[in-house]
Amino acid sequence: MSASVEAAVGKRAPTVAAGHPGRPRARLAATASRWLFIAPAVAYVAVFFGYPVVKNIVMSFQDYTTRTFFTGEAPWVGFANYAATFRSSLFTTTVVNTALFTIGSIVAQFLIGLGLALFFRRHFPLSGFLRGLLLLPWLLPLIASSAVWKWILDQDSGALNQLLGLFGTPPVPWLVSPDLALIAVIGVNIWLGIPFNTTILYSGLQSVPQELYEAAALDGAVGARAFRYITWPSIRSVVSVVIVLGVVYTLKVVDIILGLTGGGPANSTQTLATNAYHQSFVNFQFGQGAAVSNVLIVVSFVFAVVYISISRKAVDE
């Protein structure tokens, strides 16, 4: 690559020397070299993002099964995969579950994360250590932590029910009842998302100048009012980034749900992401799996666009 850039630059020198007649050529060379600089990034995006997305879209219009891997034949079926997906009785369930899972996780993660970030802004003994400890859920492998949570939440011998039993609560069917399983899974995902929210919001809070608070204190704005008029407006862009990224991360969660319930009991924790996984890698209906995941990609894409527009606005400000 660098050689071709050099060649482009090298070509440019003589044209400049040649003066007038070479000018359009020089411009051409300049454009070419500009493109050459972009080329690595374009190639990277095309190979690692463009190709998979395009392939996934193509696959969703094909009857792509185990057979395809050997024969290479994937008959074109038009919108049949999408029709099957939307007609499936599972589709509404998965959409509702995905929405509940995402909204529930994000709201709680954000509120708790913000609370902790504000709390840790006051420096007190061991605050650095405790803040480090807070990262723990982030550091553990997801499969390991979901296995541990599965034990904790077990109805008959789980640690949580043993603890509640001390206060006389009858065993709660956390992962067994279709009504509670989604709540339990959201709870574990909240635990997992708090470090991310706290860390980003904490660093956002660090960048708020201390003088603002001092000045506000002189005007009588302390506590809640200081938060409302100084903290919140200062970290607003960080907040939107945290929330939008959180939504995208949460929409695609598969591992925690698979580790805890596998989408059950009776599909009560089945989301679009787990359903796509199930179609592709358990049923080996790759075409239908691709159709479901494309629905997910469209939703994520909307949030990604929101994220880009927010971050662009932040730069403009």
């Binding site: 099957a84 499936s88 599972l90 279709p178 059950g264 009776a266």
Partner: peptide, 23 residues
Amino acid sequence: VQTALTGKAAPTAALQAAQSQSQ
């Protein structure tokens, strides 16, 4: 089986729903 054991539907209804599931 899961639908019936979690009480979401009676066995007959659970089996019918699963059988007609188009997935």
